[in-house]
């Protein structure tokens, strides 16, 4: 996989809706608390992300009709020709995200990652390689971590999906999140949500991980900044913390 370095061939129809959001991400500080508080913000004031989104939309105005197509309402869905066959226009898709039922109108080609980021404003999972190689889009589907960029949203209906936004309990961050802050385990932060999802999955099944276990759990996550030593340190500290206070285990 590491050999296939030529990608980024995304065409406008796929990425137009996300292009504004991607700009937003690279300018904002994607800390864990940030993504949580943002999702709670109401319409009373514009967040920095909202403001940048408006700017992003204006900058890509020429491509907006395509975005409109992607965001089509469910009433636009064409009637199925053969029983069991749907699309290519948008169809209702029901996702169970962080305990909440969400029904969206999506074309069959929309990935889970694009649905989360562009439709549900859950921008914790990041779109980096978009080819299942970097792990920044890692989410948990039905108890198993997957690359949401290589998962069609329509394929994962009505099964529990947990994203990084679903880890904290109220204002209490997950011990892995706390440990990342305490151990300064991030630089640019783009890979962080993916690493945290991978490490949470490890600690859920292994309360006494070794350094090798931690490294193995992170096989599918790439950190461009090279903060691996801090990530490993944070993981081992989180394991210790979870052993000390098992009640905190989410």
């Amino acid at each position: 996989m590491s050999r296939n370095i030529e990608n980024d061939t995304d065409e406008a129809s796929d990425t137009v809706a996300s292009s504004g959001a991607t700009v937003t991400d690279s300018l904002s500080t994607p800390t864990m608390s940030d993504s949580n508080s943002e999702s709670k913000r109401s319409g009373t004031s514009l967040s920095r992300r909202d403001l940048l989104k408006i700017g992003g939309m204006a900058a890509t105005a020429g491509a907006v009709p395509a975005a409109g197509m992607l965001l089509a309402k469910s009433s636009d869905a064409a009637p199925a020709k053969t029983p069991g066959l749907v699309g290519p226009s948008a169809v209702p898709v029901t996702l169970l995200i962080n305990g909440k039922k969400e029904t969206l109108s999506l074309e069959p080609r929309v990935t889970l990652l694009d649905a989360l980021r562009n439709r549900l404003d859950l921008t914790g999972a990041k779109k980096v390689c978009d080819r299942g190689q970097c792990g920044a889009c890692t989410v948990n589907v039905n108890g198993k971590n997957v690359m949401s960029c290589m998962t069609l949203a329509i394929n994962v209906q009505n099964v529990p999906i947990q994203t990084i936004e679903g880890l904290a309990q109220g204002d209490h961050l997950h011990p892995v999140q706390e440990a990342f802050i305490a151990h300064d385990a991030l630089m640019c932060g783009f890979c962080t949500p993916g690493f945290i999802m991978s490490l949470k999955a490890l600690l859920d099944k292994n309360t006494h991980p070794t350094l090798d276990d931690v490294k193995e759990a992170c096989q599918g996550n790439i950190c461009r900044c090279g903060t691996y030593p801090r990530v490993f340190e944070a993981a081992l500290a989180a394991a210790q913390e979870m052993r000390n206070q098992p009640a905190k285990k989410a």
């Binding site: 053969t82 069991g84 066959l85 749907v86 699309g87 290519p88 069959p108 080609r109 394929n155």
Partner: peptide, 18 residues
């Protein structure tokens, strides 16, 4: 990617028919 029609098959027989 190009858009497509989509079918979720109940079983292999139905999948083959699609």
């Amino acid at each position: 990617m190009k858009n497509f029609e989509y079918a979720s098959a109940r079983d292999t027989r139905q999948a083959v028919s699609f």
